[in-house]
Amino acid sequence: MSFRSLLARSFLGVLLAVASFAGTAATEYAFAAVPAPNVPLKLMSVAVQGNSRVPTADILQAFGYHAGDKVTRNDLDAGQKRVGELYSSRNVGTSLEERLRISGNGVAVKIILEEQAASAPAQPASLVLDKVEFQGNKKVSTADLEAATKLRAGGPVSNELLSADQQAIQALYKNKNVGGSFQPQATYPNHDQHVVLVWVIKEQDKAAN
């Protein structure tokens, strides 16, 4: 198995960000009379502020009401809830404030958003080495191979560490004037992140020039 194939298993997994949502409503009145939640009002304007990760057009579509529409305060609360659901569906966390300015039978709406930063991508789970074995070595002892290499049971394993150990084995064989090929084979007995590594060595009479 190649170095690249060994680590392929560690790069599986998808991080799903869970969006949080908090919504509030604030109302300003030009007059003392406060309309009941079910009293129709003329929607004068809808503004969106603070969004960057979700387009304004999508927010307005989810809100569902436009200037000139007849709405109640209950309708506007429902529109605010739909905006929160839109953010949840996009896996973007946010706090939302809906500000209403009511003057007579008209209402102006401002949707103020504070989006959360994007979540960091998921990191692949580390591979753990359960065992290292050497097979086929007759002219170079296992003790010498273990002394030359760094990978140990219980420690992490990666392409970089494998490459370093392969170079160390090649250098050891060259110093002993013994040629050979050295192929790492990795298995996953428990079908998880635990690896058994076997170095398959095919020795030659002497090192190649």
Rank of each mutant, 00 (worst) to 15 (best):
M1K: 06
S2G: 13
R4E: 13
A8W: 07
F11Y: 12
L16K: 12
A19G: 14
A19F: 10
S20I: 02
A22H: 10
T24L: 07
A26S: 12
A26K: 15
A26I: 09
E28F: 11
A30G: 15
F31I: 00
F31C: 01
A32I: 01
A33I: 07
V34F: 00
V34W: 01
P35V: 11
P37G: 03
L43I: 03
V46I: 11
G50F: 07
S52D: 09
V54S: 06
P55I: 03
P55T: 04
A57E: 12
D58E: 15
I59T: 06
L60M: 10
L60D: 04
L60T: 05
L60N: 08
A62E: 02
F63C: 05
Y65W: 12
G68N: 05
T72Y: 02
T72H: 06
D75Q: 03
L76K: 09
L76D: 03
A78Y: 04
A78M: 09
G79R: 04
K81Q: 11
K81F: 00
R82H: 02
E85K: 10
L86M: 07
Y87T: 04
Y87E: 08
S89E: 05
G93L: 02
S95N: 07
L96W: 01
E97G: 01
E97L: 09
E98L: 12
R99Y: 01
I102W: 04
I102V: 15
S103H: 04
G104N: 09
N105T: 13
A108S: 15
A108G: 14
A108Q: 14
K110F: 00
K110I: 03
Q116P: 00
A122T: 03
Q123E: 12
P124K: 14
K131N: 10
V132I: 08
V132M: 03
E133A: 15
F134I: 11
G136F: 05
K139N: 13
S141A: 13
L145A: 06
A148N: 04
L151I: 12
L151E: 04
L151H: 05
G154N: 05
G154T: 10
G155I: 05
S158P: 01
L161A: 14
L162N: 04
L162V: 15
S163E: 11
S163Y: 11
S163A: 13
Q167P: 00
Q167A: 12
Q167M: 06
Q167I: 04
Q170V: 11
A171S: 13
N175K: 15
G179K: 10
S181D: 12
F182V: 00
F182P: 00
P184Y: 02
P184T: 08
P184H: 06
A186G: 14
T187Y: 02
Y188H: 05
H191Q: 14
Q193S: 10
V195E: 08
V196S: 07
E203G: 06
D205V: 14
A207N: 09
N209F: 07
